[in-house]
Structures are given as C-alpha cells and as structure tokens.
C-alpha cells in the first residue's frame, strides 16, 4: 500500500483539536439518535465550552490514540475515532468510532475511517487484535464492521434498555491474521 498512514480514499485521520472541534461535538450531542448509537449512557446535550474544556484536559496517553475524522474533499470534520484501552503486553485494543454528521451516514466514510484505523493498529502499533462493541439496534454499524473484517464473537444478552425493551450488546473482534488476509 502506497498511501501514507492516516490517509484513506474519502477521509483522513487527523489530530483532535479542541479549538475547532468543540462546536461540532456539541452539535452532535444534541442529536439523541447519534448519542444512542454511540454509547449506553443517557443521551445528554453538552455545551461547546464543556467539550472544549474536556478536550483540552485530554493528555497524550500511552494506552490510547484519539483522532478526528476529516473529509479529504473540503476538510470537513465529520466524526471521531479512538483506539483506547491498549494492553501492550497482550497486543490488543478497543476501538470506538462516531460519525456525527448524519447526512454523511451510509456513504462509506465510516468504512474508510475503520480501514485506516486498522492499518494504524496493525501496521503502526503492531497489535494482535482489535475489539469493539456495537448495539443490536445499530445494524448499519454491524455491516460496516463486517465489511472491514470484524467477526461477531458473542453478545451480552439484553444488556441495554432503550424505548422500553432490552437489546443485546454485540462484541466483535478482528485478528491481525484476518486483517492481513483481507488487505492482501
């Protein structure tokens, strides 16, 4: 592969920038559907000042890498991607991604960002596997993860309570060997 690290075909993984990112992240936090797809916490709007303060507090860590996702055309900030909880002695990490700009859902941006994240995880961090969790009510994300090579490894039954019913939390994982087979 000749493309530089962090550079996909639609997006690039860029540094997190508290100055430019806070307004967008605050706007995303006012979208309850986005919040519910993202994590199991109650949806809650967060003001830009708070996002900015939180982002400024973030230190460079040894067990995690945070990126913003920006389009190659127009350099628009559209989401974030984190590799965190890295266990160096075992070679694994947890991945989380969110595309906050909902008009760009289903257009391949998430897939492209995931592919770049895996390239970073396996080619740069030299990890052995990457884990993620996704909710049963988010089939679009499941399809994206499968497309880049993740396999379902199990599900915590009825782990979430949304709109009066219970939903599973799905665990997915990809091993280095599987990624190598995918990308060759």
């Amino acid at each position: 592969m000749t493309r530089p690290l962090f550079q996909g075909v639609l997006i690039r993984l860029a540094a997190v920038n508290a100055e430019t990112q806070a307004d967008a992240a605050a706007r995303w936090s006012r979208d309850p559907e986005y919040s519910r797809l993202l994590d199991s916490d109650p949806a809650r709007p967060v003001p830009a000042s708070r996002v900015k303060a939180d982002l400024e507090k973030q230190e460079i860590k040894n067990d995690g890498y945070s990126f913003s996702i920006r389009t190659l055309t127009g350099d628009q900030l559209i989401g974030f991607l984190d590799l965190d909880g890295i266990q160096w002695s075992h070679g694994n990490a947890h991945l989380a991604i969110g595309i906050g700009e909902r008009e760009l859902w289903g257009k391949g941006y998430g897939t492209d960002a995931m592919q770049e994240a895996l390239r970073f995880a396996f080619d740069e961090l030299n990890l052995h596997r990457v884990t993620l969790t996704v909710f049963e009510y988010n089939p679009r994300a499941v399809r994206t993860y499968e497309k880049v090579g993740f396999r379902e490894e199990g599900r915590l039954r009825q782990h979430l309570n949304r709109d009066g019913r219970r939903w599973d939390m799905i665990y997915m994982g990809i091993l280095r060997s599987e990624w190598e087979a995918e990308s060759s």
């Binding site: 075992h90 052995h128 596997r129 199990g154 915590l156 665990y171 994982g173 091993l175």
Partner: peptide, 21 residues
Amino acid sequence: EARLRESIIRSGRRWDVLLFG
C-alpha cells in the same frame, strides 16, 4: 456469552477472554 479470541498471552501462548452473563 462471548469469547474474545486470543485476547491475552500468558505462559507463552494466547488465550481467549470469556464474558459470562
């Protein structure tokens, strides 16, 4: 409920991490 394949290395080999619910 879930078996996270080859998640840890102990005694020179890889082992799965299991999630029970």
